[in-house]
Amino acid sequence: MFMVLSVQDLCIARSGQVLMTDVNFELAAGQALIFKGPNGLGKTTFLRVISGLQPALSGKIHAKEDSFAYTAHADGVKPSLTVAENLQFWADIFDNQNIDTALSAFGLNDLKSRFAGLLSAGQKRRLCLARMLISNRPVWVLDEPSVSLDTASVTQLEEVIKQHLQNGGAALIVTHGHLDLGPSCKTVNLGEYKSNRAVYGDGAEAFL
């Protein structure tokens, strides 16, 4: 089992406030982890740290360079561009030319030439998730992917993720809803990593 990602005693802080300490887990190819936890625990910060958007307070994240594809709450969709133009832009960035597979995977083919501004929230979310396929990166980091998706789209999303896992991808998902992704998916409760002690090295520590 080739380890796609391994995290050792990670500590996470948000604007000087230590949120989680000693987070340890590993992710193998073809595996998915669903993270649960109360609101305000810092799940989003956790995903941002893993995907490299934010530096961790301490601890190490072992993963290949540029192996993360991250989907946040915000869809990152340009309303004044059409669906195809939005995806084509990201295709140029990740230099992978065929946007059709991504469009068909999320059933966006017939919306191809419509302005993204006219899409419903669910359709925008699917467009944002379609970016995952385009980035063809092994580890998907999904922050509440199923929000504002109807049941049909959720099953569609599950299908896509299972497909991704089958051909060697991995996924880290934070969601309150239920996603059944088959046997290779475990659920982790982030609540137990809630920080109870100050961690040396964080900016504010020096002042105490």
């Binding site: 941002r48 594809a69 946040a72 990152g76 960035i93 990740f94």
Partner: peptide, 14 residues
Amino acid sequence: YEDGTLDHLVIAPL
């Protein structure tokens, strides 16, 4: 920045 594209650009390979 507001619609989150900037975060994705940071992760993008360029």
